[in-house]
Deep mutational scan, measured.
Amino acid sequence: SEEWVEIALRLLELGREANINGTILNLHKEEIEELIRRLLKRI
């Protein structure tokens, strides 16, 4: 399964939302940290 691709796409999506909203992603901080942890486990 290409889970890391899904994770990377989700991170990009959150990054785009952050640019549009001008936020520092506090809302998504925990989700982002969890996604990155899952991503690093696969490398």
Rank of each mutant, 00 (worst) to 15 (best):
S1N: 06
E2D: 05
E2P: 05
E3F: 15
E3L: 13
E3A: 13
W4R: 01
W4H: 00
E6W: 14
I7Y: 03
I7H: 05
I7N: 01
I7A: 03
A8G: 05
L9K: 01
L9M: 04
R10M: 13
R10L: 13
R10F: 12
L11F: 03
L12E: 01
L12C: 11
L12S: 02
L12D: 01
L12Y: 04
E13S: 05
E13Q: 04
E13D: 09
E13W: 12
E13F: 07
L14E: 01
L14K: 01
L14H: 01
L14C: 11
G15L: 15
G15C: 15
G15F: 15
R16Q: 05
E17G: 09
E17K: 05
A18T: 12
A18N: 06
A18D: 04
A18R: 00
A18C: 15
N19D: 06
I20R: 13
I20M: 06
I20D: 03
G22L: 14
G22C: 04
G22I: 14
G22R: 03
G22W: 11
T23A: 06
T23H: 12
T23D: 11
T23S: 11
I24D: 13
I24C: 14
I24W: 09
L25W: 06
L25F: 06
L25Q: 11
L25T: 14
L25S: 12
L25G: 08
N26G: 07
N26Q: 13
N26D: 13
N26M: 10
N26C: 15
L27Y: 10
L27P: 05
L27I: 12
L27H: 12
H28I: 15
H28E: 07
H28G: 12
H28R: 06
K29L: 15
K29D: 04
K29P: 08
K29G: 05
E30I: 12
E30L: 08
E30Q: 10
E30N: 05
E30T: 07
E31K: 07
E31Y: 07
E31C: 15
E31G: 05
E31N: 02
I32S: 01
I32R: 01
I32Q: 00
I32P: 00
I32L: 06
E33Q: 08
E33S: 10
E33A: 06
E33C: 15
L35G: 02
L35I: 03
L35V: 04
L35T: 01
L35Q: 03
L35P: 00
I36R: 00
I36G: 05
I36M: 05
I36T: 02
R37L: 12
R37S: 05
R37Y: 10
L39H: 00
L39F: 09
L40M: 06
L40R: 01
L40N: 02
L40Y: 07
K41T: 04
K41G: 05
K41W: 12
R42M: 15
R42S: 15
R42Y: 15
R42E: 13
R42T: 14
R42W: 15
I43D: 02
I43V: 02
